[in-house]
Lab assay of single mutants.
Amino acid sequence: MAAAAAAGAGPEMVRGQVFDVGPRYTNLSYIGEGAYGMVCSAYDNVNKVRVAIKKISPFEHQTYCQRTLREIKILLRFRHENIIGINDIIRAPTIEQMKDVYIVQDLMETDLYKLLKTQHLSNDHICYFLYQILRGLKYIHSANVLHRDLKPSNLLLNTTCDLKICDFGLARVADPDHDHTGFLTEYVATRWYRAPEIMLNSKGYTKSIDIWSVGCILAEMLSNRPIFPGKHYLDQLNHILGILGSPSQEDLNCIINLKARNYLLSLPHKNKVPWNRLFPNADSKALDLLDKMLTFNPHKRIEVEQALAHPYLEQYYDPSDEPIAEAPFKFDMELDDLPKEKLKELIFEETARFQPGYRS
């Protein structure tokens, strides 16, 4: 834990890192770190609560700039109880001085990944967590956004079992017609939660990839272990087919990539493993919904509104309290091709509203 900075004593240090967030945020305490930044909790002297502050230093890398800009653009436009918001952003007053960006968010005690390492969940908890994931996802999908990296560590939890989806750095506007060349190379989302079509096709992607990830998360809540822990690309596919069985001819016809289709045709026939054999203690309604989410063919996979209306979630289902976005989200430009200098300018502009004396 960093010592509390005395008023006016300059930035606090946390594990050798400068955290320049005073005077409003003090009493910093280390939480963890990701690929390009550290997260601390801090005391907000204005709202009198502890908050989470993520320090991001992305400006050396085009990919990190892209992810940072995506996350900020999306989260500043989203407003939903099951999606983490941005409360404040701290950065230098000029673009030349801006080396880091500090993002202030609600402090959540833990995440689903940490929880599943230590606790076996009751059916009631599984049901409530799944409902909140789908409630947040309904809003995301209504904005025409794909999260693309749903996994237990991106689901934040607090002691009252509130759940918030975080990390929109890989999110995209849904565009089933656009052929994202190089899709697989830039697709760094965790393999275990990846839909089979991501490994088999490169053309376009749809909201059904997020539903697949939610199915993987439900299976993990039922058993405290990942359902498809593939060691590499082909191993991942083999794990999936080992449980779902061989795809039907109709399902194979959806695979545009001939090499991928021929690979699947070359494999020995596998039978589907019954879900109640894998999860003998699970609620039968939970397994019915799991089956509809972990469907090989993305066109037959359940959609988020149908999933919310499934009998497993009937005690929570309330369409009048499951809000959607006001308007579909649009990125003005494809960020993939922009140089990091341009992305830095866009991050600077996007964060201006939090600067003292800002006038829109």
Results as ranks from 00 to 15, higher is better:
198 I>G: 02
231 K>C: 03
205 Y>L: 12
153 S>H: 05
122 S>R: 15
311 P>M: 03
124 D>Y: 14
83 I>A: 00
52 A>G: 01
86 I>M: 04
195 A>H: 00
103 I>H: 06
95 I>M: 06
22 G>P: 09
70 R>S: 14
137 L>Y: 09
124 D>G: 03
86 I>D: 02
359 R>T: 09
254 C>S: 15
308 L>D: 04
119 Q>R: 07
162 D>C: 00
59 F>A: 02
116 L>A: 10
67 R>A: 03
62 Q>M: 08
169 G>E: 04
141 H>P: 13
232 H>F: 00
91 R>P: 01
325 A>F: 02
34 G>I: 04
309 A>E: 04
241 L>H: 03
12 E>R: 11
34 G>L: 04
307 A>P: 06
4 A>F: 00
98 M>H: 11
100 D>H: 03
321 D>Y: 15
198 I>K: 08
207 K>N: 12
174 A>W: 03
81 E>N: 04
342 K>A: 07
336 D>F: 01
285 K>F: 10
233 Y>T: 13
152 P>R: 09
317 Y>Q: 00
251 D>G: 09
97 Q>A: 10
218 L>P: 12
231 K>H: 00
30 Y>L: 09
73 K>D: 12
254 C>G: 05
281 N>V: 09
24 R>Q: 07
208 S>F: 07
104 V>W: 04
241 L>A: 08
314 E>M: 00
145 V>I: 02
40 C>I: 00
330 K>G: 07
3 A>I: 00
182 G>C: 10
109 E>C: 10
16 G>S: 05
330 K>R: 10
44 D>W: 01
188 V>A: 09
266 S>Q: 01
317 Y>G: 02
350 E>N: 01
91 R>D: 01
257 N>G: 10
27 N>I: 15
106 D>S: 03
199 M>N: 00
238 N>E: 10
90 I>L: 02
178 H>K: 11
176 P>N: 04
357 G>C: 15
57 S>E: 02
291 D>A: 08
22 G>R: 14
143 A>K: 09
58 P>A: 04
45 N>E: 10
11 P>T: 14
83 I>F: 15
349 E>S: 02
141 H>Y: 06
293 M>P: 03
202 S>E: 13
92 A>C: 00
169 G>M: 05
253 N>G: 10
352 A>T: 13
78 F>R: 09
30 Y>E: 01
160 T>M: 08
225 R>E: 04
38 M>S: 11
272 K>E: 09
109 E>Q: 11
233 Y>R: 09
203 K>P: 11
80 H>T: 02
318 D>G: 03
91 R>K: 01
192 W>T: 13
94 T>N: 13
69 L>I: 06
205 Y>W: 08
327 A>L: 03
315 Q>W: 00
199 M>F: 10
318 D>R: 04
346 L>G: 13
170 L>I: 01
99 K>T: 11
180 H>C: 09
208 S>A: 14
113 Y>Q: 09
152 P>K: 08
163 L>I: 02
358 Y>K: 13
213 S>H: 05
26 T>F: 13
354 F>W: 11
217 I>M: 08
165 I>G: 08
131 Y>S: 07
251 D>A: 13
107 L>Y: 10
57 S>Y: 14
149 D>P: 03
207 K>V: 11
288 D>A: 11
162 D>I: 00
307 A>V: 04
156 L>E: 11
222 L>G: 13
356 P>A: 00
96 E>M: 00
121 L>S: 12
110 T>C: 13
230 G>K: 00
275 W>K: 11
178 H>C: 11
355 Q>F: 00
69 L>W: 01
308 L>G: 06
173 V>Y: 07
103 I>W: 07
234 L>T: 11
234 L>Y: 12
66 Q>E: 11
267 L>K: 02
130 L>I: 04
252 L>W: 04
323 P>F: 00
31 I>V: 01
336 D>N: 13
272 K>S: 05
197 E>N: 09
291 D>G: 05
138 K>W: 10
256 I>F: 15
197 E>K: 14
336 D>L: 05
134 L>A: 08
116 L>G: 09
158 N>Q: 12
99 K>H: 08
264 L>F: 03
285 K>G: 12
177 D>E: 14
11 P>I: 04
326 E>M: 06
32 G>V: 14
47 N>A: 13
162 D>W: 00
304 V>K: 06
